[in-house]
Design a protein around this nucleic acid. Structure first.
Length: 727
DNA sequence: ATATAGAATCTTTTT
DNA sequence: GATTCTATAT
């Protein structure tokens, strides 16, 4: 069999890694050096040359996106589906283990997964049961504490008091929270990993089984593994199955959630026979972009040492745009997008990156105004929307009556006369008798602890859920979802409560949930073994929160946080908000090591760009409701050699008078009120039609007017693009 | 019990 | 700014 296609198109170090003997291998792969490629080809090599059965291969990634891409590329390369191979995220694979062995893991068969939102609610409830004041011990902090301990593999019963009252309270909350999870049959993200680790560790037969099964384990983004994940890998690989780890210490950006760069160093210590390969040739970016990235990251101490180089030409200089404010920043970028498209570029070749998701809003409104299609990744996700979570909670409670978080979510949604007081009676009863709220509410009604009215209402709810469960029995999944949405009366509730615009939006999303369930593929032969389709779908919803909306087929600009950009590449990249305090983020100043992580994040962002890279910052910015003045450009800008930077000037550079109070305007629109239009004036717009000016604001390139259009309602428009004409 | 208004609070990144 | 909690009125 001719296997040359596996090695032919690789460079020397890539080949070395792909064809390495079956020993532990550590691949230090710089950005754009063909990391995924090496992983994919390695798997092809194992299957075709080493004759390893796909069944015996375990391949772990961090994001669902990466996992899907991995499987797709392997199948493309081999030209055949590779069923039986385990490819997925740490959490996804841990989940699979727990579903298979729910009994040994001491979980109910229909355990449900908590997302961080659900988790926070449950932490709050744990705190309330301990009579701890939310003000003194913020639930978020407790949640963070719990997750950090789980990532370290520490259970509360093994934690020692150290005299610190704060620490003691945290332990108490952690304990109470675990009890609640157990009672409700729910499992959080950290628990998936920890529980599956304990499952394998404490069941020698299972351990033997899986260690024999997985002859080869491959890990992507190894620098982002935390202690628990590393232990998980070691446990599954045992003594005999070599781990093939690919990572880049310069791209470690998840230290804040427990990722340990040290795992890379430890790897060669723990596996003394490990082969290390460095991939240093970059195939992605122009020389200028790469030089900038190298210069920047050189400011970090304690790197493993890698030097990325490329054969590619210099390319364009890196553009730097100093915007007057965040609106000007967005409108400049919108202008650049127009230019790119006019020159024949596609919009989806452009990425806009920012430090925090909140920054996307300004771009969104600007792009809507200018008719630029865009797609936002991250932020509020589909399965995290309130209406979707409501519907899912109904579904969950039909699958597992004891799911307290779901119970609390929907007992009175839509309102059915079960108020806070009734709920707290049930909650207290549940806590006292170690029951789930479902069981407690039945007993409370039977014991007559409630007024007749409240008792009736609770009974009504119990009957509703039971009827729902009966009604969806043996229906197709999408009919189950449809049925539950209908009999819960959620649609009617939202329409009545939130009016047409918002309510309709929620109704649309609920319809989309039905479509999503219809499109859900059920593969009983592997991951959801012995799992009914509803539980499988609910797990899927929790583990893959789904992207925000937006038509994936439309050619649209891609907007995302720098974190979620990792692993992706784009011909043109805008890195926005390059301002001290925003990026590097102000929280990074306090803790040691955080600044270097911010710098690595910047390195990741820069190396996403293939041809054109633009950095931008604003001199003033409205953030969290108030305007920040006197913004200092990010130190990272200064860490890039000036010779690589081309400072782009706004056509109308805002200049300040001595008092810094008012901007002069050099635009052609200049007139008495700085915009050329007066309030009350009638104007016409190409797409929105005719309207009346309501207000004006700003000047120059960021001058805006508010127009009340006859048919479209009122909108803010940037004059530089809106092209309004007076009537 | 519920709807509403006003106050308080929190704003980094994600499976 | 937006969400989430709290106090008050219905």
């Amino acid at each position: 069999m001719d296997v040359s296609y596996i090695l032919d198109e690789l460079n020397k170090p890539q080949r070395e890694a792909v064809s390495a003997p079956p020993a532990p291998v550590l691949v230090l792969a710089g950005a754009g050096s063909g990391k995924t490629r090496v992983l994919v080809h390695r798997i092809a090599w194992l299957i075709e040359v080493e004759h390893v059965a796909p069944f015996s291969i375990l391949s772990v990634t961090f994001t669902n996106k990466a996992a899907h891409e991995m499987r797709g590329r392997i199948e493309d390369l081999l030209g055949t589906p590779v069923g039986g191979m385990w490819v997925g995220t740490f959490h996804g694979l841990a989940h699979r283990l727990l579903r298979r062995h729910w009994q040994e893991a001491k979980l109910p068969q229909h355990f449900q997964i908590l997302d961080s939102d659900d988790q926070l609610r449950l932490v709050k409830r744990a705190q309330r049961s301990l009579d701890l004041d939310d003000k003194l011990w913020p639930p978020r902090q407790a949640q963070w504490f719990i997750n950090a301990r789980k990532d370290e593999g520490v259970r509360p019963q093994y934690m020692q008091e150290n005299g610190d009252i704060n620490y003691l309270q945290m332990i108490r909350i952690y304990t109470a929270y675990e009890d609640l999870c157990k009672q409700s049959g729910v499992v959080d993200f950290g628990e998936l990993l920890l529980r599956s680790l304990e499952l394998i560790r404490d069941n020698p037969e299972l351990q033997k089984h899986y260690q024999q099964r997985f002859r080869h384990i491959l890990v992507d983004e190894f620098q982002d593994t935390n202690e628990l994940q590393y232990a998980w890998l070691q446990l599954l690989s045992g003594a005999s199955s070599p781990v093939f780890a690919v990572g880049d210490d310069d791209q470690s950006i998840y230290g804040w959630r427990g990722a340990k760069i040290e795992n890379i160093q430890n790897f060669t210590r723990d596996y003394s026979s490990a082969i290390t390969v460095k991939l240093e040739q970059n195939y992605r970016s122009t020389s200028n972009i790469l030089d900038a990235a190298n210069a920047l990251i050189a400011n970090n101490a304690g790197r493993l040492g890698k030097n990325l180089w490329t054969d590619d030409p210099d390319g364009e200089l890196i553009k730097l745009y100093a915007a007057y404010n965040e609106i000007d920043e967005a409108s400049y970028i919108a202008g650049q997008i127009h230019k790119w498209v006019e020159q024949g570029g596609k919009r989806d070749e452009i990425a806009i990156l920012y430090r925090s998701n909140a920054q996307s809003r300004v771009f969104e409104s600007q792009f809507i105004e200018q008719g630029i299609p865009y797609r936002v990744y991250g932020g509020q996700r589909f399965f995290e929307r309130a209406e979707i979570k409501d519907a899912l909670a109904y579904l969950r409670i039909t699958a597992n009556r004891d799911d307290d978080p779901s119970f609390e979510r929907v007992v009175n949604q839509p309102t059915r006369g079960i108020g806070e007081k009734t709920v707290s009676v049930i909650r207290d009863y549940a806590t006292q008798h170690s029951l789930s709220m479902w069981q407690a509410s039945k007993e409370v009604v039977a014991n007559g602890h409630l007024t007749a009215r409240a008792g009736n209402a609770v009974n009504g709810f119990i009957e509703l859920i039971n009827e729902m469960a009966d009604g969806i029995y043996e229906l197709a999944l999408h009919d189950q979802v449809r049925h539950v949405i209908a009999s819960s009366k959620l649609k009617e509730h939202f329409l009545k409560k939130e009016g047409d615009e918002k309510g309709n939006n929620r109704v649309e999303n609920l319809k989309e949930l039905i479509s999503a369930s219809q499109a859900f593929e059920y593969k009983p032969e592997d991951e959801h073994a012995n799992l009914d389709i509803l539980t499988a779908f609910l797990s899927h919803a929790a583990l893959e929160a789904g992207e925000g909306q937006g038509d994936p087929n439309e050619d649209s600009v891609q907007m995302m946080s720098m974190h979620s950009a990792k692993g992706l590449e784009f011909p043109q990249v805008f890195i926005t908000g390059m301002e001290e305090g925003l990026f590097p983020h102000k929280n990074a100043l306090e803790e040691a090591g955080r600044m270097e992580e911010e710098r690595r994040l910047c390195y990741v962002a820069i190396t996403r760009a293939r041809q054109v890279l633009t950095l931008s910052y604003a001199e003033q910015r409205q953030l969290y409701g108030n305007t920040m003045y006197g913004i200092v450009p990010s130190k990272f800008i200064h860490e890039i050699p000036g010779s690589l930077i081309d400072e782009v000037r706004s056509q109308q550079v805002p200049t300040w008078n001595t008092f810094g109070s008012k901007r002069q305007n050099q635009s052609s629109y200049q007139s008495s009120n700085e915009t050329g239009f007066s309030i009350g004036q009638r104007i016409s717009h190409a797409t929105f039609g005719e309207g009346v000016i309501l207000d004006t604001e700003g000047a120059g390139s960021s001058a805006r007017v508010q127009v009340n259009f006859d048919y479209e309602g009122s909108k803010w428009l940037v004059l530089a693009y809106a092209n309004l004409s007076a009537i």
